[in-house]
Design a protein around this nucleic acid. Structure first.
Lengths: 144, 144
DNA sequence: ATAATAAAAGATAAAAATATCTTTTATTTT
DNA sequence: AAAATAAAAGATATTTTTATCTTTTATTAT
C-alpha cells in the first residue's frame, strides 16, 4: 500500500508529535529507535519531511526534530502525499494512465470508492491525535 | 497499491477472459499488445499465472493462453494473491509485523475497514465478468 | 522426420527502492 | 575561538522490481 519510506514517515511523525512536548527535540537516533526503522534511512526521510514543512528541525547541540502547532495539525494524508505523492489517491488501480470517467478501466468505479474511503480516512486523521492512546499503551509504533 | 506485475496480471486475465472464446488461444504478443505491457515481462507473468492455475496454456503452433470455465470463475483477489501475495489484505498499514488486535498500530481499526472493503471488492469480482462491457466499449484495458 | 511455432526457462540488464557510510554545515556550549 | 553536537548533504552499496534478450522444450503441421 505505502512505500517503506512512507510507513516510516507516518510512524515517525506520530512519534515526534507525541514525544516532542514543550520544545523538546528528538535526534534521528531516538526517532529511529522509537519506531523501529534504519537510522540513516530515517535521517533522509526526516530531512525530506522537514523540507516539506511537516516537521521542524534545528542543528547542533540540543538540536533535533520537533513540531509546532501548525505541524501537529497536518494529516496523515499530508505525510503520504509528501513522501509517496498522490498516485495512491488519484491513480488508476490497474495502472492505466488514460483511465478516467469517460474511459474507465473495468474496476474504475468500485476502486474509486475504496480509494476515496482511504483518502478520507487519512485526511481526517491528524498527526497529533494519538498522543494519549500511545501514552496509555493502547496503540504502538514498534515491535515491543 | 498493486505492483506493476499485478496490474499487468489483472489486465491480462480480464483480456484473455474476453478474447479467448471457444477454445481460441492468445499469444504473449497479442496479450501484451492488448493490455499495453512489455512483451517479455508479460511472458514471465503469464507463465506464473499458468503455474498457479489462473490461465491455461499450450505450446507450439496455434498454442497460446486461454481459459476454461474454472479459470473464468477466479476472482481478481485470486490474481492479486497469486502475484503480490496477501500482504495487502492482511498486513499492517504502517508495516508493523507485530501489529494485531491486541497490539494495534494507531490506524489499525480504520485501516482494516478500508482493507476489508478492498478485499471484498476484489473477491466478489470475477475475471470473466467484463466481457460484455469491454465489447461494448464501456470499459478499457489500454490507452487507445 | 523436419520445420515451424509458441510457451517455458534462463540469463542479463536497467531502474527504483531501501539501506549504509562519510563528509559538511549550522549551532551551541565551554 | 575551540570543541562538541546533531542535522544536512553527498556518496556508495544492496536489494527488489521491472524489463529485455537468448536458449530450450513441447507441439503442430508439412
Amino acid at each position: 500500500m505505502f512505500s517503506k519510506a512512507c510507513e516510516y514517515s507516518i510512524r515517525a511523525t506520530i512519534f515526534i508529535a507525541q514525544k516532542s512536548k514543550d520544545g523538546d527535540r528528538l535526534s534521528i537516533k531516538e526517532i529511529a529507535n522509537g519506531v523501529d526503522s534504519p537510522e540513516h534511512f530515517m535521517g533522509k526521510i526526516l530531512t525530506e519531511l522537514s523540507r516539506k514543512g511537516l516537521v521542524l528541525s534545528v542543528k547542533g547541540p540540543h538540536g533535533g526534530f520537533f513540531m509546532d502547532e501548525k505541524c501537529l495539525k497536518h494529516t496523515l494524508a499530508d505525510v503520504v502525499t509528501a513522501i509517496d505523492g498522490n498516485q495512491l489517491f488519484t491513480g488508476c488501480g490497474l495502472g492505466l494512465k488514460s483511465c478516467n470517467e469517460h474511459k474507465p478501466c473495468p474496476i474504475h468505479d468500485e476502486f474509486k470508492i475504496v480509494r476515496t474511503k482511504l483518502k478520507s480516512l487519512l485526511e481526517t486523521t491528524r498527526i497529533g491525535e494519538f498522543n494519549e492512546s500511545l501514552e496509555k499503551g493502547l496503540v504502538f509504533l514498534k515491535r515491543n
